[in-house]
Amino acid sequence: MPNIDEPELADIQLGAVLHALSDPTRLAVVLQIESDGERCCGALAVEVAKSTLSQHLRVLREAGITRTRACGNQRWVSLRRDDLDKLFPGLLDVILRAADRRAPVS
Score class of each variant (00 low, 15 high):
Met1Leu: 09
Met1Asp: 06
Met1Ile: 08
Pro2Ile: 04
Asn3Gly: 11
Asn3His: 11
Ile4Trp: 01
Asp5Pro: 00
Glu6Asn: 10
Glu6Cys: 00
Glu6Ala: 03
Glu6Phe: 00
Pro7Ile: 00
Pro7Cys: 04
Ala10Val: 04
Ala10Leu: 01
Asp11Ala: 14
Asp11Phe: 00
Ile12Thr: 04
Ile12Lys: 11
Gly15Trp: 01
Ala16Asn: 04
Leu18Ser: 12
Leu18Val: 04
His19Tyr: 08
Ala20Arg: 01
Ala20Cys: 07
Ser22Met: 01
Asp23Pro: 00
Asp23Val: 13
Pro24Val: 02
Pro24Phe: 03
Thr25Gln: 07
Arg26Phe: 02
Leu27Ser: 06
Leu27Ala: 05
Ala28Leu: 09
Gln32Val: 10
Gln32Cys: 06
Glu34Thr: 12
Glu34Lys: 15
Ser35Asp: 09
Ser35Asn: 12
Gly37Arg: 12
Gly37Trp: 03
Glu38Trp: 06
Glu38Ser: 15
Cys40Pro: 06
Cys41Pro: 00
Cys41Gly: 14
Gly42Met: 12
Gly42Arg: 14
Ala43Glu: 11
Ala43Asn: 15
Glu47Met: 15
Val48Lys: 14
Lys50Pro: 06
Ser51Tyr: 07
Ser51His: 13
Thr52Lys: 15
Thr52Trp: 09
Leu53Gly: 13
Leu53Val: 07
Leu53Phe: 08
Ser54Val: 04
Gln55Phe: 12
His56Tyr: 12
His56Gln: 04
Leu57Thr: 11
Leu57Gly: 01
Arg58Tyr: 10
Arg58Cys: 09
Val59Met: 13
Arg61Gln: 04
Arg61His: 01
Glu62Lys: 15
Thr68Gln: 13
Arg69Met: 12
Arg69Val: 05
Gly72Arg: 13
Asn73Thr: 14
Gln74Ile: 09
Arg75Gln: 09
Arg75His: 14
Trp76Asp: 12
Trp76Glu: 06
Val77Phe: 00
Ser78Gln: 13
Leu79Lys: 10
Leu79Phe: 02
Arg80Thr: 05
Arg81Glu: 08
Asp82Ser: 15
Asp82Thr: 14
Asp82Tyr: 05
Asp82Pro: 00
Asp83Leu: 06
Asp83Lys: 11
Lys86His: 13
Lys86Met: 10
Lys86Trp: 02
Phe88Val: 08
Phe88Asn: 06
Pro89Tyr: 06
Pro89Lys: 06
Pro89His: 05
Gly90Gln: 06
Leu91Asp: 08
Leu91Phe: 05
Leu92Gly: 05
Leu92Asn: 09
Asp93Trp: 01
Val94Leu: 09
Ile95Tyr: 11
Arg97Met: 06
Ala98Leu: 14
Ala99Val: 02
Ala99His: 06
Asp100Cys: 03
Asp100Thr: 04
Arg101Cys: 04
Arg101Gly: 08
Arg101Pro: 01
Arg102Ile: 02
Pro104Asn: 06
Ser106Gly: 11
Ser106Glu: 05
